[in-house]
């Protein structure tokens, strides 16, 4: 089976909400989270999607 989409990493300010699976980056502030997500987006060639204000995922499409 060919997996077309995959969560490459998770960026969050609330580590209570996430566990397991993809690499998780825990940040202290929203600004830090935005920065990390912007960098990871460029590095991983994925798109950052916001699931909530405190949780971003980078998805490869």
């Amino acid at each position: 089976m060919n997996i077309e989409k995959a969560i490459l990493s998770v960026i969050t300010t609330n580590n209570q909400k996430i566990t397991g699976g993809a690499p998780i980056f825990v940040c202290d502030t929203k600004e830090e989270m935005d920065n990390v997500a912007a960098n990871l987006e460029a590095i991983l060639d994925g798109i950052s999607h916001a699931l909530s204000d405190e949780l971003y995922i980078i998805v490869k499409h």
Partner: peptide, 20 residues
Amino acid sequence: EGAGLYIDNIYIMNIGLPQR
């Protein structure tokens, strides 16, 4: 609308970063 990009009432995609 939040992170969702819309044209009229048609949902296009989810863009997380405020900069994007």
